[in-house]
Computed example of a mutant assay.
Amino acid sequence: MNVDAFLKSAGWEGAMREPLAGDASSRRYIRLCYGEKRAILMVDPQDDTARFERIANHLRSIGLSAPAVLKRDKGLMLLEDFGDAQFARVIAQTPETEVPLYLAATDVLVHLENLPAPDGLTTASPEVLGQMIEPAFTHYLPLLGRSAGREADRITSLLTDHLDKHLPKTSVLVLRDFHAENMIWLPERSGVERVGLLDFQDALAGPPIYDLVSMLQDARRDVSDAAHNAVLAHYLGGTGRSESEFMPAFHLIGLQRNLRILGIFARLATEMGKPGYLNLIPRVWRHIETSLASPVSKEIAPLVHRLFPEPTPSRLKEGTN
């Protein structure tokens, strides 16, 4: 991955480079400035660039805003720059925009629900979703000095059975990391194109509720009750789903996602030198508690509470010493 040669071949030799905040992966992002022109350089050691380009092209083909790929090579990609109006940043500066921004993002999900997922994606079946919580047992529990034993299989099996019973049987494109740090506000565009989408290379074909849970049970920021309630009402109205059908699936996906995230954040802290992710774990745990309090979780809740210790500051500190 010769960055200088890549930029020269793309006509961006000599551009000013401004490193941007990265994500939980090994990817790096650099803003390039060359006169009035702007672009984003993605440096991706794992080289998911072909996958990113394929999904980006699909998103644009169905009327959504994904960055145009200006040039791609092994582990390197030059992308359209959507600017700095990240949802999380805009809301922090002007809190009154939270509800309208989240409703605009909800319109994206309603739009996706009406369309089939592209071919070639892994299908997030109940079995696959159940297996995806493994990092909670292999990384979060050891962080806090616990081991899973047979309880891991019991929780996984019970969660899988509940997902199979309650999830919608249709599959849509699931972007997976659909939250306020991965959406850019593009007010000069119209309709669903006002929401710029990022970080979708790990997309799946899966339950349409998944990305809504990802947005509302955000590991990085607290979504206000006003936004939460407005989004749920807007989504139910836009999709025609009933609340009684929707909420059990919502809480089961919430439990599945957040158990997995516990393990992923623990791994990032202990194995990848990113201890800042430990600070996010208490919020993730609160999301888990919310889902466990739902009637649909009454069989799973005692097992999770018995096996998983609450991530208190003292426990998290001891786990990294």
Results as ranks from 00 to 15, higher is better:
residue 62 I to N: 04
residue 273 G to I: 01
residue 292 L to E: 09
residue 79 L to F: 13
residue 211 D to W: 03
residue 194 R to G: 12
residue 213 V to C: 04
residue 118 P to C: 01
residue 91 I to N: 06
residue 283 R to G: 05
residue 199 D to A: 00
residue 60 R to V: 06
residue 262 L to C: 00
residue 316 L to H: 13
residue 20 L to H: 05
residue 48 D to N: 15
residue 257 R to A: 05
residue 235 Y to E: 07
residue 201 Q to Y: 10
residue 136 A to M: 14
residue 172 V to E: 05
residue 113 E to N: 15
residue 312 T to S: 13
residue 83 G to P: 14
residue 109 L to M: 09
residue 249 A to P: 09
residue 265 F to V: 02
residue 284 V to C: 06
residue 245 E to V: 13
residue 49 T to W: 05
residue 118 P to Y: 00
residue 275 P to L: 03
residue 84 D to F: 04
residue 270 T to M: 08
residue 159 L to H: 07
residue 198 L to E: 01
residue 103 L to I: 14
residue 54 R to T: 14
residue 251 H to R: 00
residue 300 I to Y: 10
residue 226 A to W: 05
residue 133 I to N: 09
residue 125 S to D: 08
residue 310 E to V: 12
residue 100 P to H: 01
residue 144 L to M: 06
residue 44 D to L: 08
residue 158 L to I: 12
residue 119 D to R: 07
residue 265 F to M: 03
residue 260 R to D: 02
residue 126 P to M: 00
residue 281 I to W: 04
residue 214 S to Y: 09
residue 121 L to T: 13
residue 253 I to Y: 03
residue 65 S to R: 06
residue 239 T to Y: 09
residue 143 L to F: 11
residue 203 A to S: 12
residue 18 E to M: 08
residue 185 W to E: 14
residue 75 G to C: 01
residue 88 A to T: 15
residue 160 T to L: 08
residue 104 A to H: 04
residue 128 V to L: 10
residue 238 G to W: 11
residue 295 P to W: 01
residue 122 T to V: 15
residue 186 L to Q: 14
residue 46 Q to H: 14
residue 6 F to V: 04
residue 288 I to V: 11
residue 235 Y to Q: 03
residue 312 T to P: 05
residue 16 M to N: 14
residue 62 I to C: 04
